[in-house]
Design a protein around this nucleic acid. Structure first.
Length: 373
DNA sequence: AAGACGTGGTT
DNA sequence: TAACCAAGTCT
């Protein structure tokens, strides 16, 4: 048996490619260290995987640095105030992840003695940990031979086999194909290698097939256009929703804020008063929909695109006496606005009404500097 | 099982 | 610029 013949095994080729071309990321252990038996901290693997759900590596980096500095262990996170966690997560999106992150930390810290379950099934019981994340943690942190299937791997596998069946229906079949490739030795490196391959070589547009370690095993480039895969079900049209938002300031520039309900869109996050727009309902768009009477000035409209609808928000501003504000809420000084649990759409609306808000503060810590989403 | 659920970067 | 996309999960 020749060396070339051994190297033709796709799994070995991917691992060899990973040894040479792996990305260095803050939550990873490099292949040489992994070869010496070192493993990534399960807490850091879990935290990074949850942050990376539907989110780019670039966006995650500063949040990961902030979270691990503030809360070095899962018990630290479990003991944190929920509001502090939501503040730290603000801007990352998909806020149910943050709510589940906190619940999961509490479960691990208080009912599992501070240690993550070390099997796929055990991990999948945790809030916010689904098929992908359970497999990823099991493989990367605990050396389990788990089949890790994410968007990157779906792309690689669908091209490798030129799979015409559309996602998400073809997911089960793809998981079987990944399982067949996943080695007993280095399953974590294999999973990360497949994801790196999808992220850097087997990209959605213009894949670099000439540089791919699976080039001569891959069906797509010879029989087909690789960019055609993976085949996905057609997307639905995004409806436009309308609403109004109200920036009330006092004489000092403090802004009146409220807390959103704990579930649903932007659940658990902070907001300025606004009309009741949801995924299925327009809100009123005029000053007559304001939470309390004031001389509201129309500041124009901001457009914000959510996953399943586009929001056009008319923004109003008024300077009022604090006694004018009614209903639950509080006055937040302009200087500390930036540290609040404000989703991007709310920051955008506030900025529309008061461009002076969110200016860089003169005195910031190193961690806060690193954390500028 | 299909829809809810964010955001910012790239093409 | 409008469309598409990025390491999914929950209900």
């Amino acid at each position: 048996m020749t060396k070339a013949h051994i190297a033709a095994d796709p799994t070995s080729r991917i691992l060899g490619w990973y040894d040479r071309h792996h990305r260095d990321l803050p939550w990873r252990i490099s292949p040489p260290m992994a070869a010496r038996g070192e493993r990534a901290d399960p807490y850091r693997v879990w935290l990074s995987e949850v942050m990376l759900q539907q989110t780019t590596v670039q966006a995650v980096k500063s949040y990961f640095a902030l979270f691990t500095a503030k809360w070095p262990t899962v018990t630290d996170l479990a003991e944190a105030e929920t509001e502090e966690v939501m503040k730290a997560w603000a801007g990352l999106g998909y806020y149910a992840r943050a709510r589940n992150l906190k619940k999961c930390a509490e479960t691990v810290a208080f009912t599992h003695g501070g240690r993550f379950p070390d099997t796929e099934d055990g991990l999948k019981q945790l809030p916010g940990v689904g098929d992908y994340t359970a497999a990823a943690i099991a493989a990367i942190a605990f050396d389990r031979q788990a089949a890790v299937l994410d968007g990157n791997v779906e792309r690689v596998i669908s091209r490798l086999h030129a799979i015409d069946a559309p996602l998400p229906g073809s997911k089960g079949m793809m998981r079987g194909l990944v399982a067949a490739m996943t080695p007993a030795r280095r399953p974590g490196d294999f999973a990360q290698a497949m994801m790196d391959l999808g992220a850097t070589i087997c990209t959605p547009k213009r894949p670099a097939c000439v540089l791919c370690p699976l080039n001569d095993a891959c069906v797509a480039p010879v029989s087909d256009d690789p960019q055609r895969f993976p085949v996905k079900a057609a997307k639905k049209e995004k409806p436009v929703r309308l609403g109004a938002a109200f920036v009330a300031t006092d004489e000092t520039g403090a802004v009146f804020l409220r807390k959103r309900p704990g579930h649903g869109l932007l659940g658990g996050m902070t907001e300025i008063p606004n009309t009741d727009w949801t995924a299925r309902q327009d809100g009123a768009t005029g000053a007559d929909a304001a939470p309390f009477a004031a001389a509201w000035q129309n500041c124009g409209t901001v457009v914000h695109v959510f996953t399943h609808f586009e929001l056009r928000l008319t923004v109003f501003r008024s300077t009022v006496s604090r006694t004018a504000a009614t209903g639950p809420g509080w006055w937040e000084p302009e200087e500390t606005l930036d540290g609040e649990a404000l989703p991007s759409v709310m920051k955008k609306a506030i900025k529309q009404a008061m461009p002076e808000a969110f200016r860089p503060r003169p005195r910031t810590t190193e961690i806060e500097k690193a954390h500028t989403p």
